[in-house]
Every structure is written in C-alpha cells, then in structure tokens.
Design a binder for these strands. Sequence first.
DNA 1: ATAAAAGCTCAACTTAACTTTAGGTAAAGT
DNA 2: ACTTTACCTAAAGTTAAGTTGAGCTTTTAT
Lengths: 150, 150
Amino acid sequence: MKDNNLSVGDMAKRCGVNVSTLHFYEEKGLIKSWRNQGNQRRYPKDTLRRVSVIKAAQKVGVSLEKIKHALATLPDNRTPTMEDWQILASHWNSELNARIQYLENLRDLLTGCIGCGCLSMSNCPIYNDQDKLATEGPGAVILNKKVKLD
Amino acid sequence: MKDNNLSVGDMAKRCGVNVSTLHFYEEKGLIKSWRNQGNQRRYPKDTLRRVSVIKAAQKVGVSLEKIKHALATLPDNRTPTMEDWQILASHWNSELNARIQYLENLRDLLTGCIGCGCLSMSNCPIYNDQDKLATEGPGAVILNKKVKLD
DNA sequence: ATAAAAGCTCAACTTAACTTTAGGTAAAGT
DNA sequence: ACTTTACCTAAAGTTAAGTTGAGCTTTTAT
C-alpha cells in the first residue's frame, strides 16, 4: 500500500541521503515525484534504484550531468522495466568499462615497476616512457594512451 | 640539462593542465618547486609523474585531499625512487581495488538482471534485494554490501 | 636593444553539488 | 485537541577545485 507512496523522509532514510539532496535532484531533473493532497512529495518505489545508481556513479567520478543524461533514457511515464534498465546499462557499459580500465592502468602505473626490473627512477623504462610521451602533445600521459575519459 | 629544470609552462604542456592549476596544486601542497634567480618556478622531472597520478586519481573520483595524503608518503628532500612509489602504491592498493570493485558492482547492478531470469521489476530478486536492504539501516544499498568507499 | 611571450602574486570570480535558514503548512502521536 | 515531527518553498551560504584578471617582472626571440 505504501510502496509506491514513499515520502521524502522514507526515501532519504532508505537511500542514505538528505531530504535536501532529494529536493535538489528533483530540481535538477534527476528524479521525479508526484504530490499528495497536502502538496508533499511521493515517490514510486523505483526511485530507490535511481538514487542508488546516482550515488554509485557519483562515487566513481561520474558527474550529475552525465548521470542525468543516462537516466533520461528511462521512460518517465511508467515504471521502468528490466529492459529499460538494460538499455541504460548498455549505454553506460563503455563509460564504466573505461573507468575500470583507467583505474587498473593507474594501479599498474603505480605498481608496475615491481616487475620491470629497474633499480632507479632514471633507468626505469616505464618512467621514461611517460616522459617520452610528452613529445606527443599536451595531455598525452601514459594513462591516456590506453583509454580516455571525458 | 633542462630535465630537472622544468618551467611551469613546460610542466603544464606536458601534463595537459593549466599553469594556474600547477600554482593551485603547489598552494595546496600537492607539488613543490624551487625558484630560479628571477623567482620563477622550476620543477624536478618527477613532478610530471606526481601530476599524472593526481589527474588520474581525480578522474576516478579521488579527492585532492586524499591524493595529497597519499603523495605525502613520498620523500620531499630527494627524488622519489621506485621503492618510494611502490610504498605509495601499496598504500593505495586497497583504495583503488575498492573503486574497481565499486565500478564492477555498479555495472553488475545495472546489467545483472539479464541473467537473473525475471521478467518484471517487481519480481526481480536483485531489485527486491535492494529494497530489503532498506531495513538494515540508512545508506545500506546493495552496492555498499560488497564494498565501501569514503 | 627592444618587443613579445612567460612568469609572479594576490584577490576575486566560477561551477558543481549540496546544505542551511527562515517562515509557514500538513500529518502523526498521545 | 494539541503538540511534536515532517514537509514545503525560496533564497542564501558552503566546499572543492579551479579560473580569471590586474599590475608588474623576467626571459626569449628578432
């Protein structure tokens, strides 16, 4: 009975965000609500998932603008089906894979010299590689060689 | 001859950032420089790597505060050796692995229902799982069950 | 030698993503 | 019934991470 009638307070508690954040997301067009008699917000249950996705994506550096864009692929006249979510997911897959790659590259850049056999910074082929990339134009650091973000 | 004498302009070009950003990072204590006769900044070559690491970490959502903290493990009286970088890397490994996990969880959350066999949102065990987690206290969304950030 | 390009400092401005405050209404608990 | 708790709106404030601008000095190119 209450499941498609979540109040802001309920939502906030269940998503672990502030009420003001939900107001803010609504103002920005990331989520929607309908109003009851007393003009209070009520949310359909699937908003829980939307907010979870928003928070999760934000934690790995995706901006609200991008998240909004992704969420815009979901229908807004009805509860999204699994298929709707899957379409969103497929749009996002490359973005997420790119970020995973980016993280792995960073980790490898930091730890990579363990296996490279070099003893000093100045002899390290990886370190020098990075430096050589400088000649390839601005921003061409080793990490961007493999995968680009933004 | 010039390699441990990079100017801000050189650095900026080679790292793909603005000069003002380097000033800003210095002010915040993320990088250091020495000054020449004319009071202009000069950077040792390893600052290139520092800035690359800063930018890379930022892209995957790590704050400058955390990055600063990590970089603080590097020696500041001498050029960091591979070992110094490795110590930093090992400190960061769990942070980076957590973020990779987080991304994979997000991707799985979005795409997971492909294999779950459900046909509707209300029947989906993954979706309902998330909802059940609501009873476990604020912020307990499915993603946080597996790994926490911040 | 001189002019253009780089640099310097310090302060103010910008953008994203929220949070806080103020002043009032609605709903719930006792 | 009444009082405490939850909501509402609109505007102002906050923090992180830079960017821009003004006025002045140093380097570099011709």
